[in-house]
Amino acid sequence: MQQIGKRQMSILIIVFLIGSTPLFELGIKAKQDAWIAMTLAAAAGLLLTVMYLRIHKRAPEAGLSELYMMHFGKWLGGAVGLLHACWFAYESMRNVRDVGELTSMALLTLTPKWIVMLLILLASAYTVSKGLEVFVRVGQLLFPIAAVSYALVLLLLLITGLPDIHHLRPVLENGFAPVWRAAFPDLLSFPFGQIVIMLVFWKYVAEKKEIGRITYWSQTGVSIFLIMMNVVIMSVLGPELASVSSLPLLEVVQLIRLANFLERLDVIVTLLLFIGLYVKMTALYMASVFSVNAVTGIAYRYCVMPIGLLIYGSSFLEPNNTYHIWIGLDITLKVVPLFQVALPLLMLLVGVRKKYKAKTKTS
């Protein structure tokens, strides 16, 4: 069986959760209090991770689909596992489409989206076909590039004095209700609840006893970073401009002008978003393949191509980027709690009930 180390798992969690998140100013419904909504959602995300780890510890050698079958039975659990595999594929498709839209808007305006999307999906499919160990090594290579690039962007923003703290005031102008509505379920679902995917990959971590500690630290670090990025974007653009911007981070970086020499840093942001989108789409694609393999018994290598074709074909269902974003941020985020909260919670309760029955019989 493939195995990865605890540091590799940590990098996978960090790069996956960051992913395409900086593409959007999340929590904008709360206006200048978006960072408070992010903080609430991040705290709730950690509680979800506690639940996922409790479930994982019941069968450390089982993946998500195996856990479904253990808790709900072979047929019902298998059906739920396949449903979750379809959801992973759908989420991967969304990232494929994000790459196509980003490239068309920011880089290759005359290149057809279908070519860009085909190329990035082929790269992702090749990585998936090589297995988890190769994928996490790719993540290890990309992580330093992403970390240095984000640090450089933040440093340049501070040097140029673009952030204005007044854009974050007044705090809680309209009370706590808008903040709560922005945080739940939208911000909890994306990105923090997406760590449910680790129920697929935790079984492959060699140091099983370290999984909980490493996961908590990694998720906490990502949460702090995402809250900080949210604050920076809001303090530069302000709530009005941030709410109408399709790519807020890109617009922020385009404002950097240093000594009439250093400007046009769009390429850095585009590189960061490509790295995040590639890692996220590949992880979701791989999770779908693992889940289908576990339920059906079809060889892993035979699942890669059909699922890839399904992802690529479905990426054309949305007619334009406005519709794509609306589906993703208004419709999808209302459905995804079924997979992130409802089904894992049901597993947790079923497991407790079984444990209780076993104790009753022995007594």
Rank of each mutant, 00 (worst) to 15 (best):
R257C: 00
M228N: 06
I268G: 11
Q254C: 00
I211T: 12
V269N: 02
R257E: 15
G276E: 00
K280G: 00
L258Y: 13
L277T: 10
V267F: 12
L250S: 09
M234H: 03
M234P: 02
L262P: 07
V252W: 06
A299C: 03
S245H: 02
S245A: 13
I307H: 08
V252T: 05
K280I: 04
V236P: 05
V295L: 08
I275V: 10
V267T: 12
L309P: 00
I214M: 13
L273N: 04
G212M: 09
A283K: 02
Y285G: 06
S243T: 06
L237G: 06
W217F: 13
L249R: 07
A294F: 08
F225L: 15
S218T: 07
S246M: 14
T215Y: 08
V253T: 09
L247D: 01
Y302A: 14
N260S: 13
M305A: 10
L226C: 12
F274G: 02
G221S: 06
M286G: 01
D266W: 08
I256E: 06
S245G: 05
G238F: 12
T220I: 15
I298T: 13
V289G: 01
L309G: 08
M228R: 06
I214D: 12
L309V: 09
M229H: 06
V295S: 04
S243V: 07
I298M: 09
M281R: 06
S288M: 05
G221H: 09
